[in-house]
Amino acid sequence: MLVNQKNVKSIFINLKATFQGAFTQAPTDWTKVAMLVTSTSKENDYAWLSRFPKMREWIGDKAVKSLAAFGYTIKNKDWEATIEVDRNDIEDDQLLGYAQQAQAAGQSASELPADIVFALLSGGFHNLCYDGQMFFDVDHPVKGVSVSNKSTKKLSADSYAAAKASYGAARTSMRQMKDDEGSSLKILPGILVVPPALEDTANYLMTADRFPDNTPNPYKGTAEVLVVAELTSDTAWFLLDTSKVMKPLIYQERKKAEFVEQTDYNNDNVFMRKKFLFGAEARANGGYGFWQMAYGSTGETA
């Protein structure tokens, strides 16, 4: 093939179309557990998370809640996937591999939100949230009292007793969450997130009428099972309340992933090294919302 500006432009138009075709197949499971926040600067301040919104009776002066002393900022990160196109490959019509790479780049770009969001769940036992504690922790401070949204219990459907000690305890703990004035936060856990290794256990727990010991299953249908291959542990599981506008996780998007290219003949990369470039760029990050809306277990103990 003759390498000229017209032919190169045509090639990259096709590569972009291939990229876009794969990008439109974006997975959407992450939207079930995370809230999309559109960012307009290099970072967003979430200090307001220290005030879980709750109405109270207006008697006398309004009770104005100030922001807590700690702050919580999510800084946007740059993301990229870049591929070289050798000019000789254009001359020799060896472009099939680049089309496949463009497709892979589009797929990777579409998966970025899910990668970020589900990494937050896996890292929730170690990463800090707005109150300065780990997102999943046993001692979140609420008006001088330590409150837990963390367990080590293995998710089990072997018997009613085992299910109650794991899933049942998580559900009860979340529904008992109160604000710093002692009022119920009305948490409604509805999504059970598990790795593939726990898929059968979770599905049995949510669909079976009775446990193997023939006791009734009161947890049937109480949550949607979401199986997430990106989770890094085969034993950890998570129960989330996603019924409200605010979700327990945040996906912060500054710039949606887009196709970029470098095909200018005057560019040093082309003139000196006969390399054209294409790929994807994005700016985004993720973070934690209200810990009260999430419960995590490492699944390490029976």
Score class of each variant (00 low, 15 high):
residue 210 R to G: 01
residue 288 Y to G: 09
residue 118 F to R: 07
residue 114 A to K: 06
residue 176 Q to R: 10
residue 132 G to I: 10
residue 12 F to Q: 11
residue 8 V to E: 00
residue 246 M to Y: 07
residue 195 P to N: 11
residue 36 L to D: 02
residue 22 A to S: 14
residue 46 Y to E: 10
residue 297 S to M: 11
residue 150 K to R: 14
residue 281 E to L: 13
residue 102 A to G: 05
residue 134 M to P: 00
residue 36 L to M: 12
residue 194 V to Q: 03
residue 294 A to G: 11
residue 101 Q to I: 06
residue 121 L to A: 06
residue 109 A to D: 04
residue 245 V to L: 14
residue 231 L to E: 05
residue 54 K to I: 04
residue 58 W to V: 12
residue 45 D to V: 13
residue 288 Y to V: 09
residue 13 I to K: 06
residue 278 F to Q: 03
residue 66 S to H: 09
residue 269 N to S: 14
residue 186 K to S: 13
residue 104 A to R: 13
residue 192 L to C: 07
residue 40 T to S: 13
residue 128 L to G: 04
residue 244 K to Y: 01
residue 95 L to I: 07
residue 2 L to Y: 04
residue 302 A to P: 06
residue 21 G to S: 15
residue 170 A to G: 05
residue 264 D to H: 03
residue 46 Y to A: 09
residue 16 K to P: 04
residue 272 M to K: 06
residue 236 A to S: 15
residue 72 Y to R: 03
residue 210 R to W: 06
residue 58 W to I: 11
residue 232 T to K: 15
residue 111 E to T: 08
residue 280 A to D: 02
residue 14 N to R: 08
residue 288 Y to K: 05
residue 96 L to R: 02
residue 82 T to M: 14
residue 39 S to I: 11
residue 74 I to Q: 01
residue 103 Q to R: 11
residue 117 V to I: 13
residue 62 K to C: 01
